[in-house]
C-alpha cells in the first residue's frame, strides 16, 4: 500500500515538475506547481509528518500559490518567447546540473544504513507520542523565541511588500521612460 501510494504521488510530483518546465504560459506552470506541492504533502504524510502535511497544503499550495496566480493574472503575463538562454547557462549550467544530480544519486544509492518508511508508522492515538505533540513541545518550549521572531519577520515582509508594490514609489515615471526608450 505504501509502495503504491509512493509511486503514484512521486509520479505526480515528477510529472508536475516536468510540466512546469514544458509549459510556456505562466498560469499553466503555476497550476503544475500546485500539483507538485500537494503531492509533496501526501509524501510528508507517508513519512509521518502530519503537521507539515497540513502546513504544506495551507501555506504552500494555498497561500503562496494563490499569490503567484494572483500576480500572473494581475500582470496579464503572456506567453514567454523561447530563447536558448545565455551562453553561460548552456556551457556551465547544464553540465553542473547533470554533475550535481549524478553525485547526489551516487551518494544516496551507495549510502548504507538508511532505513525504510512504513505506512502509518508515526500515527498514534497516544497524545504523548503523536507527531503533533512532539512538534508543539519543541516549538513552544525550546524554540519559542525563534518562533516569535518569525512573526516579526513576516510583519516586516508584509510592510516591505506593500511599500515596494505601491504606486508612486521607486522606479516609475521619468526614469522608467528613459530606460524604456534606451
Amino acid at each position: 500500500m505504501h509502495l503504491i501510494l509512493f509511486i503514484i504521488f512521486a509520479g505526480f510530483c515528477l510529472a508536475g515538475a516536468i510540466n512546469l518546465l514544458l509549459q510556456t504560459h505562466p498560469i499553466n506552470s503555476a497550476l503544475s506547481l500546485i500539483v507538485v506541492m500537494t503531492s509533496l504533502a501526501v509524501l510528508y504524510l507517508l513519512l509521518g509528518a502530519e503537521f507539515l502535511a497540513a502546513a504544506q497544503i495551507i501555506v504552500y499550495s494555498g497561500a503562496i500559490m494563490v499569490l503567484f496566480t494572483f500576480v500572473v493574472m494581475l500582470l496579464n503575463a503572456g506567453r514567454e518567447e523561447r530563447t536558448l538562454g545565455s551562453r553561460a547557462a548552456l556551457s556551465v549550467g547544464f553540465p553542473s546540473v547533470v554533475a550535481i544530480l549524478a553525485v547526489l544519486s551516487t551518494i544516496i544509492i551507495r549510502a548504507q544504513g538508511l532505513g525504510v518508511a512504513r505506512l502509518g508508522e508515526g500515527l498514534t492515538n497516544d497524545p504523548e507520542k503523536s507527531n503533533m505533540f512532539q512538534v508543539s513541545r519543541v516549538l513552544f518550549h525550546e524554540l519559542l523565541l525563534p518562533f516569535e521572531v518569525t512573526s516579526i519577520l513576516i510583519l516586516i515582509a508584509i510592510l516591505g511588500a506593500v511599500a515596494i508594490a505601491s504606486p508612486g514609489h521607486g522606479y516609475t515615471g521619468d526614469d522608467g521612460e528613459r530606460i524604456s526608450h534606451k
Binding site: M1, H2, L3, F6, A10, C13, L14, A17, I18, L20, L21, P26, S29, A30, V36, L43, L46, L47, F68, V71, V72, L75, A77, E80, E81, R82, T83, G85, A89, G93, F94, V97, I100, L101, L104, S105, I108, I109, A111, L114, G115, V116, A117, R118, L119
Partner: peptide, 30 residues
C-alpha cells in the same frame, strides 16, 4: 508495506535538479 528512504531522497534530488533546469531555461520572471 515499506519504501526505502533512499527513494525519497532520490525523488528530492531529481526535483531539485528539475528546479535548477527550470531556473536556467525559463525566460519569464514569474
Amino acid at each position: 508495506q515499506e519504501v526505502p528512504l533512499s527513494w525519497y531522497l532520490l525523488l528530492s534530488s531529481v526535483l531539485f535538479s528539475l528546479g535548477v533546469v527550470g531556473f536556467l531555461i525559463k525566460r519569464n520572471l514569474i
